[in-house]
Amino acid sequence: MAARRHIADAAMPSVTMEGFAVVFHAASGATHLLASPVPEILAAIGPDRGAATPDEIVTRLRADYDMDGEADDDVAAVVAERIAELTASGLVRAA
């Protein structure tokens, strides 16, 4: 899993409600509530930015956000876990 590249399944409309991103996934007809940092990770591998490995996703997130001194390994672990969750939901696929 470490070096696999992932990409968001499609450009998905998203609205923010009560701190959650609400995403409708047309392919499955399911609606998902995403808590931070999942929407940010999803945006980092959106169709406009292309597929990325977990390490590349960490780099993209660092470029976009201040992560309060989190070590790369810790960020990568969280990213890998969130990517697995997103893949299971169908929002993200291996590229």
Partner: peptide, 27 residues
């Protein structure tokens, strides 16, 4: 951190906690 940067803070949250809630199609 907040004082030194105007960039948005990203909180990673706890590992192990689920961050995706799926609402199945009503059908």
């Amino acid at each position: 951190g907040a004082g030194a940067s105007t960039r948005r803070m990203l909180m990673l949250g706890a590992a192990g906690a689920s961050m995706v809630v799926t609402i199945r199609p009503a059908l």
